[in-house]
Amino acid sequence: MVVGVRSITVEGPPVVAAGFPSPAEDHYDGPLRLDDHLVKNPSATFVLRVSGHSMTGAGIADGDEILVDRSLTASDGSIVVAVVESEFTVKVLRTNPPRLQAANREYDDVPIPEDGISIWGVVTTVIHHVGPGGGRAR
């Protein structure tokens, strides 16, 4: 009777059950993890989809995904998601004078009223899919 040898992966390079141990085994820390690299605070981080062209100068295009960290405090120059007229809006925060600035000269600034504005979170990363069809099916 022939016993089939199955290959098993346990967080490392393939180890063949009936074979020799891989020489890489002791030197392998696991694959690169995009989650760890891109998300510092998972419980406070949300992914949003961008709609519109006002942020192209900051490398944020229509249809991109942005990572928004709600645990960060926004300061001058932060790219933020703010609530403007009951809508989520992505803009650059400017403090002097207080306003939300687009990263595209064709769009006007939004002044921040005296009683302030609600900042939903701070944008940390942009995911921009490239290539024909935008890289992945949406």
Binding site: F46, R49, V50, S51, G52, H53, S54, F88, R138
Partner: peptide
Amino acid sequence: AYTTRWDELLVAHAR
């Protein structure tokens, strides 16, 4: 399903 589906993400407007 804002936080669990890629095709239902919250939308941030850039306009």
